[in-house]
Amino acid sequence: MFSACAEVAGDHARVTVTGEVDMATADTMIQTALREPARQLTLDLRAVTFFDSAAIHAVVQLAQRFPPGALTVLPSRQVRRVLEISGLGEQGWLDPA
């Protein structure tokens, strides 16, 4: 089951996503992330169990909308693996932990 919810504190938004992010849900993740005006975004994907090419594209779109250093992606093990395989494992927005 997919869910995406946003919490905003000042100019920082935190979007927590759970479940599968794919062609059917990636746009909802983007819309949730951009719903509230924020200068910084933390995209918490630690509870994501499936992440496909549509999800990769969604994260890249978010990275393009925020200036360097304003986006942080907290990946699950599965998300990190997909991003590494796709060549995005060294992006500055990907949390190294």
Rank of each mutant, 00 (worst) to 15 (best):
P68T: 02
A13L: 03
Q31A: 09
A4Y: 09
V82T: 11
V48S: 13
L74V: 04
M23E: 13
R81K: 15
Q78G: 14
M29D: 04
I30P: 00
D52P: 09
T28R: 09
V8Q: 05
T72W: 02
G69P: 10
A55L: 12
A26F: 01
V79C: 00
L43G: 03
L45V: 05
L41W: 02
P96N: 02
R46K: 15
A9F: 04
P67K: 13
F2S: 06
G69M: 06
I30A: 00
T42I: 02
L34Y: 03
V79I: 04
L43S: 01
T42K: 00
L71D: 06
L41V: 07
A24Q: 12
E84V: 12
F66A: 02
Q40H: 14
I85P: 07
V21E: 07
A13H: 00
I30R: 03
A55K: 04
R14D: 00
L88C: 15
G10I: 04
A26V: 08
Q61Y: 07
L88T: 12
D52K: 10
A13S: 09
A63V: 01
V59N: 01
D11T: 12
D11S: 14
V15E: 05
E20I: 06
R65I: 05
E20D: 14
A24R: 13
V59P: 00
A33R: 01
H57P: 00
D52Q: 11
V8L: 05
H12M: 04
T72L: 07
S76F: 08
M29Q: 06
R39N: 10
R77S: 13
V8F: 00
